[in-house]
C-alpha cells in the first residue's frame, strides 16, 4: 500500500484573532498533481506554507514523508526535499541565474561547484532558458524569471513541489510558458501542490482539485468532476464566477 507523501492532521493557524486555517485534515499521495483553489483569503497560500513549515502553525501537525514537521529538529534538511515556487519569483537579485540555482545544492547538500553547475545546466535546458544562465534575474522577463525559479526549486531533486500562485504576477502571454513547464513536471510524475487561479490548468493537468473557503477545505474532487459536477454550493458559485470571467 502506498503511503501519503503529505499528511495534514488537524492543522490550525491564526494571525491574532483571524483564523487562517481551521482544523484541516487532508492527505496527498505521491505522484499526484493537486490544484488548491478558492477565493482570496481562504487560506490556500497559508496551507501551502505550512507544508514546509515556512509558517509556524499553531495546533495540529504536518507529516511529510513519514516525518513530523512539528517535532522536526532539522527542518532545513526536510525543506531541502520540498521545492517551492513563489508568486513573485523571489530569485536572489545579486546572483546570476546559474548561481541562484547552484546555491542550495552547494551549501545544503555540499555538492561541488562543477557538479552543481552541470546539473543546473540540465535543469535550465529543461525549462528552456539555458541561454540566460549568466544573466541576472532583473535582466530577464517575468516568464523567464519564474522558469529560473522553478529550476532553482528542482535543483535539490525534491520529492514534492509547492507552487504558490506561480502565474499571478505574469503578463498573459508569459503565463503559458510557465504552465507548460509545470505540465511537463506533472507528466513526469512529480508530486505537486499548486495554488492557482488558472482553471484551465486545474481541469486539464491536475488529478484533483481542493476547494477552500474561510480556512476550511470545502470540497475535494477529481478535477473533471469538480468542474462538471461540484458537490458544494460554495464551489458551484466559485466556478460560475471564475468561468464567467472568460
Amino acid at each position: 500500500m502506498t503511503l501519503p507523501l503529505v499528511q495534514i492532521n488537524n492543522l490550525s493557524l491564526r494571525y491574532g484573532n483571524f483564523v487562517a486555517l481551521d482544523d484541516i485534515s487532508i492527505d496527498f499521495m505521491p505522484g499526484t498533481c493537486v490544484v488548491i483553489c478558492g477565493p482570496s483569503g481562504s487560506g490556500k497560500s497559508s496551507l501551502l506554507r505550512c507544508v514546509n513549515r515556512l509558517e509556524d502553525f499553531g495546533t495540529g501537525d504536518v507529516i511529510f514523508d513519514g516525518q513530523s514537521l512539528k517535532s522536526a529538529h532539522n527542518i532545513s534538511k526536510i525543506r531541502s526535499n520540498i521545492g517551492m515556487v513563489f508568486q513573485h519569483f523571489e530569485l536572489y537579485p545579486h546572483l546570476s541565474v546559474m548561481n541562484n540555482i547552484t546555491l542550495a545544492p552547494r551549501y545544503v547538500n555540499g555538492i561541488n561547484r562543477d557538479e552543481a553547475e552541470a546539473k543546473a545546466h540540465k535543469l535550465l535546458e529543461r525549462v528552456g532558458i539555458l541561454d540566460q544562465a549568466n544573466k541576472y534575474p532583473d535582466e530577464l522577463s517575468g516568464g523567464q524569471q519564474q522558469r529560473a525559479a522553478i529550476a532553482r526549486a528542482l535543483a535539490l531533486e525534491p520529492k514534492l513541489m509547492l507552487f504558490d500562485e506561480p502565474t499571478s504576477a505574469l503578463d498573459p502571454e508569459m503565463i503559458s510558458e510557465v504552465l507548460q513547464v509545470m505540465r511537463d513536471l506533472a507528466r513526469n510524475g512529480m508530486t505537486m501542490l499548486v495554488v492557482t487561479h488558472e482553471m484551465g490548468f486545474a481541469r486539464d493537468v491536475a488529478d484533483e482539485v481542493v476547494f477552500m473557503d474561510k480556512g476550511k477545505v470545502i470540497e475535494r474532487n477529481a478535477s473533471g468532476n469538480f468542474f462538471d459536477n461540484p458537490q458544494s454550493d460554495r464551489a458551484k458559485e466559485f466556478i460560475d464566477r471564475v468561468l464567467q470571467k472568460i
Partner: peptide, 29 residues
C-alpha cells in the same frame, strides 16, 4: 523583501546560511 528569506529557507538553507549568502550580500549593496 520577506520573500527572499522564505525562498532561501524553502531551499533548505539555515538561518545563518541565509544571512551569509542571500541577505547580507544583498543588503550590503
Amino acid at each position: 523583501p520577506k520573500g527572499q528569506f522564505l525562498a532561501a529557507y524553502s531551499t533548505g538553507l539555515t538561518e545563518v546560511q541565509t544571512f551569509r549568502h542571500v541577505i547580507i550580500p544583498y543588503a550590503f549593496r
